[in-house]
Structure formats: structure tokens, C-alpha cells
Design a binder for these strands. Structure first.
Length: 454
RNA sequence: GAGGGUGUAGCUCAGUAGGUUAGAGCAUCAGAUUGUGGUUCUGAGGGUCGUGGGUUCGAGCCCCAUCAUCCUCCCCA
């Protein structure tokens, strides 16, 4: 058979892994610097932990795991019947009761609900793990990808939001990616739905207006008209959407206040944004920002890269009662996520990776044959004890082949110890960048490599 | 779930109107060069033309189906 990868997955070769690690390291370092603590959760969860948390669309995209033992003969009949029900979109236990995790937030909420009396609140955790979505792959979209999440639970303070916005700003500036950090507030969207007499169906409205920059005003209004909104409400929404054309946070805030003068819930959201802007003036208010995940209740955040066509590379928001879904209420939280795979794609396309991310291997010892192996081997151990990474070519093949290998692997120094060197108790070192070669004692090799003066 | 593009060597792709034995570059390996890499030169290996059917005297090329992959929409990181 010829091997293939499952759709939407990738292998990462050495060079790619190094670049990815560069991103992970920057994010992890900042997470720690901001006081977040690490957490890991299983690759898969019980299906009912995940179902119903991400909206209808999300449920469809959860990778379900087939139960074990379905192939056992005595289970054939019941499996067949259960599968019939699955085909009708009905219950799925008996066929599947576990699923690959879809994001890091819900498993975190599950963890907090299970451990809340052990945790010191407010609890700040970060988590760097893969998640899986049964989506159709396309540009910037994978079925397996990494998220890096930072969340704070057990605090309602907007300081947390401000910190997370600062975290975004710091990380993306270190990665040298130009981004637009957009914020909005679900309370404003709730207020808008209320004002339209459509309070129960906030998501329909928000999902439609979220598409403004993609499909344009006319189509958004058309879509909402089909949802059954009155002409009066459509007029209100048009007025609201006009705000998206305005530049400048303070102007937008003022207009929002006027527009929602008689909608208390919206005013609350506006007030929250105003406070946040005072902490983080670098972010932009985006009144059309909605976000599909239905557990957000307050601030919502999204990060878009500038100068490239790519979906969001980060997102998050406040959720006031996520653990309530697991029977533990009154634990509010707020969090953000970094999409490493898209960040990688952006950096690759805009050539933002530093040059010198190649291997750390510093020295290769040439293999001159059995007579010299023991001596070379002991030199190699000495170098390693000195913290210099090195390897000896394992086969006594032709000299130029060994050098070719060193060249391809970008090894900066090649050590040659053959007959002459052994007799003289000297070592020949060739600098592969300059091509120059010198003979010296081992101690000098070590100190000069350490100083980078070889 | 809806719509579109592409499948020829390990990779990127040529392949002209359907016509003998399917090509190039890169990569790999070997030699030129038995203690000095990248450059250069010479040579070699490597293909069920995604798969199955059909049209035809004849199919890499045309038709149908199927699979894979990429892109767009929906939704998202």
C-alpha cells in the first residue's frame, strides 16, 4: 500500500518543527511571565461534555470516536439499530460516547468544575495542546491544529480582560506580526436584539451582522429580513452597522451611547468597553464582531493579521457561567486563544521567521576508520561534557561524502583527527562557514567554540 | 453540507490536433576527486500517466464513474 495522511493533517519536518517551537516558546514564555499556570487535559472527552457547547455548527464538527466492541457478534443487532437512529440524527450513545476535543476552553471548564474546591481563585491557567475539528480543510484550516489558551476563572474584574489584551499585544509584537485586535461586547449585541424585539434570537442577528465585511450591507439586511425581522428593526440594525464605518474608538463609544440610550444591558457593555479601552488603547472597537461560540457573555476579542488574507489567528472572550453547564455555578471566566498553525502560515508567507533557527548541532567529527574511532569517541565525550553539541560520523566512508553530509546539515565546525593529528596530539578544525582550517589543542578548540571565535 | 479546480518520476511541472519506445528541472545514487564540502562535468536508477469502465484501428490527451487533493461558501484558530 502507499501511505497517505488523513485529510487535514500534516507531518512536520525538522525545519518546520523548529519554526513552530519558536512560536510556542514565545507564547509560553509570556504566559508564564503573566502568571498563568500550565494545564493539560486528555485528547478526548466524553461526548456529552462537548455536545451543545459550541452551537449547532460546532456540534457537527466534533470528531466522534466509535465505541469499542461494536464488532462483537452478540452486539451486531443492537449496533445496527443504534446506527439507524444515528442516521436519523438521534442519540449517539451506544455507538459513540467519546470525542476528540474541539477546543481547550470547555475541557478547562470541565476541569474547573471538577476541581473548583482545590483551586486557588482566581485561577489562571495556560494550555498548549492540539484540538480536532471535522471541517473541510482549506487554506489556513486544518483538522488537527494547536491552540494556546490563557484563561482566568473566578474573577469578574475587567483587569483580566486588560491583561489578556496586553498579552496579545506583547506576543504578536515579539513575533513581529502586524495585527488588528478587535473587541466588542455580547451585552451590546443582546441589547441590539432586544431593541429589535428579537431578544431570544440574538445569535441569528449576530451571525448575520458578523458577515458585513464579507457580503455587504444589502445581503446582511436581506438575510435578516428572511429571519423575520420587521422593517423597523432592520432600520435600527442599519443604523447600528453604520457605526462600523467610523474610525476612532471614542467616537464609536459616543455614538453607541446615544444609540442605546434606553437599553441598559447595552449600556453596561459599552461601559465595559470604555474601561477596557482606557487600559488598552491599542485595540479597535468592532461593532460587527460577533463570534459563533455561544458561551460568551461579555467582552469578545478577535485578532486579525494585517497585510495578508487569512482568517483570525486568535480569539476569545468572557463567559460568565461556563462551569454552570457542569453543575458548578458562579465561576466567571475570561480567556483568549492563539492559533499557532495560522500564525505559522502568516509568518511563513510574510517571511517573519528569524534566519538562524537551524539545528543546534555545532560539531561533527570525521570518521577516519577503526584505528581512530576510540580516540575520536573520547574527544566527542569531552566536547559534550563542555556543553558543545556534536556527533561523529558513524561510517568510515569517503572523506568528501562525510563533508558533504556536514554541509547539508549546516554543521558549523568539522573536527578532523586522523593519523597526523593523533601523533601530534593536535586537532584540525574546519570552519564550515569560512572554509578555513586550523590545527590546535583540544582545550583551545573548546574555548574558541564557546567564544564563537573559531 | 453546497459549488469549482487539479491528479504524469521522490518534488515542481511539460506533453502541442488522439499516432511508434512518455520528457525536463530539482532531488537521490555513483564516478571525475583514496585527507577537504557547497560549484562544475559525466553517468545511473526511478512511471500500473490516481483508480475503474467506455469511445477509437490506436487514449497521458475525449466521455462516464470513483477516489484523492486544493480552493470558495457556511463556520472557525
Amino acid at each position: 500500500m502507499k501511505p497517505t495522511l488523513p485529510q487535514g493533517t500534516r507531518d512536520f519536518g525538522p525545519e518546520t518543527v523548529r519554526k513552530r517551537q519558536y512560536i510556542f516558546n514565545i507564547i509560553r514564555t509570556q504566559f508564564e511571565l503573566f502568571g498563568f499556570q500550565p494545564l493539560e487535559t486528555p485528547a478526548f472527552e466524553n461526548l456529552d461534555t462537548l455536545m451543545g457547547k459550541y452551537g449547532d455548527e460546532g456540534d457537527k464538527l466534533i470528531f466522534k470516536i466509535l465505541n469499542n466492541g461494536l464488532e462483537r457478534p452478540e452486539k451486531h443487532e443492537s449496533s445496527r439499530q443504534l446506527f439507524e437512529q444515528v442516521l436519523q440524527g438521534k442519540l449517539e450513545k451506544g455507538i459513540t460516547e467519546r470525542a476528540l476535543k474541539y477546543d481547550l476552553t470547555i475541557p478547562f471548564a470541565r476541569y474547573v468544575a471538577m476541581n473548583h474546591n482545590l483551586l486557588t481563585m482566581p485561577f489562571k491557567r495556560y494550555q498548549i495542546q492540539p484540538v480536532w475539528r471535522a471541517d473541510r480543510p482549506q487554506r489556513g484550516r486544518y483538522r488537527e491544529f494547536y491552540q494556546c489558551d490563557a484563561d482566568v476563572v473566578g474573577s469578574r474584574s475587567l483587569i483580566n480582560e486588560a491583561e489578556l489584551l496586553q498579552l496579545y499585544t506583547t506576543v504578536f509584537s515579539q513575533l513581529k506580526i502586524d495585527v488588528k485586535i478587535c473587541i466588542n461586547n455580547r451585552k451590546i449585541l443582546v441589547g441590539l436584539a432586544e431593541a429589535c424585539g428579537f431578544a431570544g434570537n440574538m445569535m441569528d442577528i449576530t451571525i448575520a451582522i458578523d458577515k458585513l465585511d464579507k457580503i455587504g450591507l444589502d445581503k446582511v439586511i436581506e438575510e435578516l429580513r428572511n429571519k423575520g425581522l420587521t422593517e423597523d428593526s432592520l432600520q435600527k440594525i442599519q443604523t447600528y452597522l453604520k457605526l462600523s464605518e467610523i474610525e476612532g474608538n471614542s467616537d464609536i463609544l459616543q455614538l453607541l451611547k446615544n444609540f442605546f440610550a434606553e437599553t441598559p444591558i447595552a449600556l453596561e457593555g459599552i461601559q465595559e468597553i470604555e474601561t477596557l479601552i482606557s487600559f488598552a488603547p491599542q485595540v479597535s472597537i468592532d461593532v460587527t464582531l460577533a463570534r459563533g461560540l455561544n458561551y460568551y457573555t461579555g467582552t469578545i476579542i478577535e485578532v486579525k493579521p494585517l497585510g495578508i488574507q487569512m482568517g483570525s489567528i486568535g480569539g476569545g472572550g468572557r463567559y460568565d457561567d461556563l462551569t454552570g453547564l457542569f453543575g458548578v455555578s458562579d465561576i466567571p471566566g475570561v480567556g483568549i486563544s492563539f492559533g499557532v498553525d495560522r500564525i505559522y502560515d502568516v509568518m511563513e508567507e510574510l517571511k517573519l521567521f528569524p534566519e538562524n533557527l537551524e539545528g543546534s548541532l555545532q560539531v561533527m567529527l570525521v570518521n577516519f576508520g577503526e584505528t581512530f574511532n576510540a580516540y575520536n569517541f573520547s574527544v566527542m565525550q569531552t566536547l559534550r561534557n563542555e556543553g558543545i553539541s556534536c556527533e561523529m560520523y558513524p561510517e568510515p566512508i569517503k572523506f568528501d561524502k562525510q563533508l558533504k553530509y556536514a554541509g547539508k546539515r549546516n554543521i558549523p565546525y568539522v573536527v578532523l583527527i586522523g593519523e597526523d593529528e593523533m601523533n601530534e596530539e593536535m586537532i584540525s578544525v574546519k570552519n564550515f562557514t569560512t572554509g578555513l582550517q586550523h590545527k590546535m589543542r583540544l582545550t583551545e578548540v573548546i574555548s574558541r567554540i564557546k567564544q564563537g571565535s573559531l
